[in-house]
Nucleic acid binder design. Sequence first.
DNA 1: GTTGAGCGTT
Length: 175
Amino acid sequence: SRRRHTGDRVSLENPTPSRCLGVFGLSLYTTEQQIHHIFSKYGNVDKVQVVIDAKTGRSRGFCFVYFESQDDAKVAKNECTGMEIDGRRIRVDFSITQRAHTPTPGIYMGKPTHIGRSDNGYDRRRDRDDYYYRGGGGYRERGHYARGYRHRSPSPYYRPSRRYERERSYSPRRY
DNA sequence: GTTGAGCGTT
């Protein structure tokens, strides 16, 4: 059989280990306090930063957790990825970035966070949902989400392994 | 309480 050789390659899928974890796929309502409480089980946590959208003031659905110890961060990463918090299955990885960007007062240098409407008021997100609801059987009814396949689509960050899917699809870890 | 496409701009 063929075994893919990855070596020590560092990429978006394989960030270099550090004390800083990125936690993605959070509910918008999950707080830094909750995350702190949950992750502290694996070691001392210095700080949790939920990333807030500057425009809306709401969570962008991800956060960063700083452990005192890299070893603890590693354990937490392995134990917490796939965990369900506030009804959302989270993904945990070592952070690619190690700190927030240096502020640039007055000029927003970040990525745009929402898809704007085009000239004629057409909204892509809306249209996409309509598409899925129209399709035979529908989107929700087929259990696409419920079975944990939501990360299947192209993402530079996440490639679930078969083992992961077997073990985590139906029974998310609890904290 | 928008369900997602997500690595941070105090």
